[in-house]
């Protein structure tokens, strides 16, 4: 979903840049609460994993592919503030690969690192609040968060396109096309996210932020195997 330069006009790109800077600034503060000696190396690994995952385009429909965005995965594993930073670091590195525009970096960070990650976080947190505690619940909530994050990111792009799209295209058609193709990509995102969270939670449940309930002080509580 990497937006190239030119799709969105300068004023809206600059406004998105300001949103991205403000949002990442807040995440830099929030991440201090999520990161300690044990979770900081994991967060670096999550960023690297998201970079790798974003290279793996899978086919979704005739002549169309999608790839992991990684926002839900990062939010669940290392927390939403750190998760946003993970995805933002990936998007920054990708600019050097000419993937995602340079003036569009603010749009890409806002769409994928902020909207994508925080949508996933809110969905996961809401589901964990009402569903019975356990590993299966965290995996299922991660899948739902992943699907929601991709759809929200697609709609965030559509909103920027409505505000500052250079091409004169009916916005309803863009919204419908973005929504339908990203519903399919979101299913792929949900499957990859669930499989990865399930793998991590089976060996190191203590490292899964959402399973700990987001409280770093409870890091030790769930080290012993618990039934899901």
């Amino acid at each position: 979903m990497h937006v190239p330069d030119g799709f969105i006009n300068a004023p809206v790109s600059i406004a998105a840049g300001a949103i991205a800077v403000a949002g990442i600034g807040l995440c830099l503060r929030g991440a201090r609460r999520e990161l300690d000696d044990r979770t900081a190396p994991l967060a670096g690994l999550v960023a690297a994993f998201v970079f790798a995952g974003q290279m793996l385009n899978f086919p979704v429909a005739a002549g169309t592919s999608g790839h992991l965005l990684g926002g839900a995965l990062a939010a669940v594993l290392v927390g939403p503030a750190t998760g946003s930073l993970c995805v933002a670091v990936v998007l920054f590195v990708q600019v050097f690969f000419a993937d995602g525009g340079m003036t569009a970096l603010g749009i890409n960070v806002t769409v994928m690192a902020l909207v994508g990650v925080w949508t996933a976080h809110l969905v996961v947190r809401a589901l964990l609040a009402v569903l019975p505690r356990g590993r299966t619940t965290v995996v299922a909530a991660s899948a739902a968060g992943a699907l929601a994050s991709v759809l929200a990111a697609a709609m965030a792009f559509t909103a920027f396109f409505a505000l500052g799209g250079v091409a004169d295209v009916p916005i309803g058609a863009v919204a419908a096309a973005m929504g339908s193709v990203h519903a399919l990509i979101g299913v792929g995102e949900a499957l990859i996210t669930a499989a990865t969270v399930m793998s991590v939670i089976s060996v190191r449940p203590d490292l899964v932020h959402a399973y700990r309930g987001g409280d770093p002080e409870r890091l030790e509580i769930h080290v012993a195997p618990t039934t899901a």
């Binding site: 937006v3 385009n57 086919p59 002549g63 592919s65 999608g66 193709v181």
Partner: peptide, 9 residues
């Protein structure tokens, strides 16, 4: 081995 088809956007 990744798909080289255009992505969603």
């Amino acid at each position: 081995f990744a798909s080289s088809s255009p992505d969603g956007l």
